[in-house]
Amino acid sequence: MSKMQSVSLTVNGEAVTATVSVRKHLVDFLREDLGLTGSHVGCEHGVCGACTLEVNGAMVRGCLMLAVQADGATVTTVEGLADSGRSDAIRAAFAERNALQCGYCTPGMLASALEYVEAGGTADRDAIRAHLSGNYCRCTGYQSIVEAISDVISGEVDA
């Protein structure tokens, strides 16, 4: 049994075919093989949320999925969310509220925030905080992130 396998998937709208080591997780594949360094590795055990990205329409932990499992999948990273304009409003709100400092949690935080907003989440601060409970940010204190998301939901952002 080969420890390498071929995968074909769509990443940020582009078709990608590659041969990957079966043990490589999805984030390492995106970062190292495709140069999509926007997704970050924070803990590699699924707790910090830094690697959160979209696979087949669902936000998942990129470190808890093998690259080979993404064969046939549609993957969207923080770069793709920006390029397509899908994250325009949330990014504008994050900048306006200073909802990021070092920016390391931001790709995962944006993914989780976008999942909440796109699912029709309310501007209720506790509900926003609960939804973000799996995304660690060491810098901000979270309040600005909550406010940025709330701003987007309330339509208070010009993107």
Partner: peptide
């Protein structure tokens, strides 16, 4: 004054050490 860096980082255009090969 909002940070210009924030816009870059939110697009996934950070330049962290591990991003470099």
């Amino acid at each position: 004054v909002p940070r210009p860096d924030a816009r870059r980082l939110a697009e996934g255009r950070g330049r962290f050490v591990d991003d470099k090969q």
